[in-house]
């Protein structure tokens, strides 16, 4: 048994990363899928370079959000009841389990954001201004989506329609993050204030993190 909150978090992160290294379904299937989605959009709406440059950032964030949904679906289908029972019997703090699963999801999301971001810059000729703020936005979106996905997976877990329900729950709840990310990018491009949008994303991340940690035990017990 591993004692100490952060040691348990680390153990959960290591477990998830090891599982991903062995299976590779999230990074080796979903990332190419995201890149293909970026490739399909110009085929559907036309290949006007000016239009694509304009809508490219928005499309990128939508695809990141949808990937967040996929991470949550994958999380919900992987965390089976016997696994949860085994973790509980081993003395895993539910809050540590929640934080660990969130951190590993956030790592996957950051990798996805980076790779698909490079593809989006190449395909849509997206200009980059304010790299520090953009990096913060990427981090906040990854953290927010990971938190929402992990919490939603915990909510629906063990229910029969669980994984089918995840997209309906995650997609609308992630709208403030999508809005914050797109408005931050627009603000950086247009040279107007972005602090309120960054604060909106920070607020969402904090609220979901607090709810997730506080409700980890009651959710595990049912």
């Amino acid at each position: 048994m591993i004692t100490g909150f952060w040691h348990q978090v680390r153990a959960v992160v290591d477990r998830d990363l090891l599982r991903e290294r062995r299976q590779g379904d999230m990074l080796w299937i979903t990332i190419p899928f995201g890149a293909i989605a970026l490739l399909l959009i110009p085929l559907a709406i036309g290949t006007d370079a000016v239009l694509l440059r304009e809508i490219g950032p928005g499309m990128y964030w939508v695809i990141v959000m949808l990937f967040g949904v996929l991470v949550a679906v994958s999380r919900a289908s992987r965390e089976t009841l016997p696994q949860q029972d085994a973790s509980a019997l081993l003395g895993l703090d539910p809050a540590a389990g929640f934080v660990g699963r969130t951190v590993s999801s956030a790592i996957f999301l950051l990798i996805f954001e980076a790779v698909v971001g490079i593809v989006a810059i190449g395909l849509y000729d997206i200009s980059i201004i304010g790299i520090g703020w953009l990096a913060l936005t990427l981090l906040l979106v990854a953290a927010g989506l990971a938190l929402l996905g992990t919490l939603t997976a915990a909510i629906v877990n063990s229910s029969s329609a669980g994984t089918a329900l995840v997209p309906l729950l995650v997609a609308p709840l992630s709208v403030p993050l999508l809005l914050g990310a797109t408005q931050t990018y627009d603000g950086l491009q247009g040279g107007y204030g972005i602090l309120s949008w960054v604060l909106l994303m920070v607020a969402v991340v904090l609220v979901v993190a607090i709810i997730g940690v506080l409700t980890a035990r009651p959710l595990q017990e049912t």
Partner: peptide, 12 residues
């Protein structure tokens, strides 16, 4: 238990 968590989360 499960819907209560979503009830709190949805209030955002």
């Amino acid at each position: 238990s499960r819907s209560s968590v979503l009830g709190v989360l949805g209030a955002i």
